[in-house]
Amino acid sequence: MSDSAGARRSKVARLVDEHDLAGVGDELEARWTATGDDHWSLRDLAAEFNRELVGERLQAAGLRPSDSEIETIVQWLTGAEVGAAERTQLRRRLEREGVDVDALDRDVVTYQAIRSYLRDYRGAEYERASGDRTETVADAIQKLRGRLSSVAETKLEQLRETSHLSLGEFHVMVDVGVYCTECDSRYGIVQLLDAGGCDCGETDR
C-alpha cells in the first residue's frame, strides 16, 4: 500500500523523504503484514529502520561504516548499554567527521513511531495467521476478561436487587495491564503483544 497523501505527516514518513530512503516504507509494510516466519515485529522494524537511517547519514558525511559500527551507534542512540568511554569516543569521532550527533539522536525512532507510520499514515494492518501463538494467547486472555466481566456484572446485579448495593445502570470494565519493572513501562495486554515486547533497551523519543 502506498503512502496516503492526505494522512497526517509522521516522523518516519518525514525521515524517509528527507534522507531519500526509497522503498523503505514498502519494505516496512511488507515485513510487518507478512505472516508466519516472514513477519517482523514493530520492534525489529524500528531497529532495522534506525540502521538504515544511521547508515545513510554516515555515508552522506563521507564515512564507510561497517555493519557492526552502525549497530553500535544505533544501540548507543536508542539507549542500549554502551560503555561511557565508548559513548564519548563515538560522539567525538562522529563530530570530527561532520555528523550532527544531536540531530541524529533526535531522528532515531521507536517502535511506536513505526506503528503510527504503518497504521495511521499508510493504513496498513497486520492480520495474524490462524494458529499464531501470540494470537492464541491474546484470545485466551480476552475470553478470561469476558468471563470475569460477566461474573462481576451478575454478582453486582444480585447485590443491587437485595438492597445491599446502591447502583444505577452500569457497565463492568476489566482491563489487563502489564508492568515491566526493568524499564518502568506499562501496557495493555493487547498493546504489549502487538508491539512484540516492552521498552527494555529503548528510550522515549
Rank of each mutant, 00 (worst) to 15 (best):
T110F: 11
R87V: 12
R93Q: 07
L90C: 03
Y111D: 08
R93D: 14
A85E: 13
V109G: 07
V82G: 07
R87F: 15
Q89P: 01
V101G: 09
V108A: 13
Y111R: 01
L104K: 00
G98R: 01
E97Q: 12
R106T: 02
A103C: 05
V82E: 04
A84Q: 09
E86K: 03
T110V: 11
Y111C: 12
T88K: 02
T88D: 12
D105T: 12
T88Q: 06
R93H: 07
L94H: 03
D107T: 07
E86W: 00
R93G: 14
A85L: 12
G98N: 08
R93M: 14
D100G: 00
A84L: 09
V109M: 05
E95S: 11
D105M: 11
V101L: 08
L104C: 00
R87Q: 15
T110G: 12
V99L: 09
D102Y: 13
E95A: 12
R87C: 11
E95V: 14
L90Q: 06
L104F: 05
V109F: 09
A85F: 05
V109W: 03
D107L: 09
Q89N: 12
L104R: 09
V82S: 05
E97H: 15
R92F: 07
V82K: 09
L90W: 13
D105Y: 15
R96M: 04
D107W: 02
D107N: 03
A84F: 02
D102K: 11
E97V: 06
V99N: 10
A85Q: 10
L90G: 02
T88P: 01
R87M: 08
D100R: 05
A85R: 14
V109Y: 04
G98P: 00
R96Q: 00
E97K: 15
E86Q: 04
D100T: 01
L104W: 06
L104E: 00
V108L: 06
T110I: 06
L94G: 04
A84G: 04
D102E: 14
L90M: 10
G83E: 11
R92N: 02
V99D: 15
R91E: 13
V101D: 04
T88E: 06
D102P: 11
G98C: 10
V101W: 08
E95H: 12
L104T: 02
A84K: 03
D102I: 11
R93C: 03
E95D: 08
V99A: 04
G98E: 04
D102F: 13
E97G: 12
T88L: 08
D107I: 01
Y111T: 06
G83M: 01
R93S: 14
Y111L: 05
L94E: 04
R92T: 05
G83N: 03
T110Q: 05
R92I: 00
Y111H: 00
V108I: 12
E86G: 00
E86A: 02
V109T: 00
